[in-house]
Amino acid sequence: MNGILPLRLERVSFAAGGRTIIEPLDLTLEAGASTVILGANGAGKSVLMRLMHGLLAPSTGRVAWSTEGPRRRQAMVFQRPVMLRRSALANVVYALDAAGVPVGQQLRLAREALQEVGLAYAAGRPARVLSGGEQQRLALARAWALHPEVLFLDEPTANLDPGATREIEAVIKAFDVAGTKIVMSTHSLGQARRLGDEVIFLHQGRVAERAPIDRFFPQPASPEAAAFVKGELPWA
């Protein structure tokens, strides 16, 4: 199968309102290893993911997938998912329809996706009255149904309690097992450890460090990352 990965960012920068948010950077994301984008608030994590996903156009440089028309083969889950005022099932069906999946398969795929994230019981409920954790799982079901090659997650558990966070992380692991490349931003070091294989550490719009997860935490190479890890884990 011709995958859309690797994803190459070549001299990509982003500026808005006269402020540079992402300094020119080169990055290559390969299939396989789950990538966690770490960094303090305002480091540019969300913007970087939006550049990769294609929601923002880079000010300079280019974002290149290995094959054309990658829109349907990548999905994104936002910090606060937006649900349409219809049932949970209908929200997944909508995503399938938008992706051009034949009408005859939509219902079956949508039900399977809800099953996968443990939301089968809520299929008929209006999506907007689900709890925060359920809505985020629904967002994951919406992505699951599309069987994307790459899944971007922008701080997917930032607004959730520990129980809901565990459920979300379990679903993200299932994506990983199913062969989807995970690209996730977080500022939780624990979550980075649980889900990531490698870390891209952003500091003020620059990639300060990129390292395998089991090397990054014991001995971060850059002073910025060292300070971040220390600051987040004061007991370490």
Partner: peptide, 22 residues
């Protein structure tokens, strides 16, 4: 809605109709 809909590959007329209905 915009970001979410664009992420799903929906824009233009279809996006407008989706929001209108919602």
């Amino acid at each position: 809605y915009e970001e979410q809909l664009r992420s799903l590959g929906v824009q233009g007329l279809r996006g407008a109709l989706t929001v209108l209905w919602d």
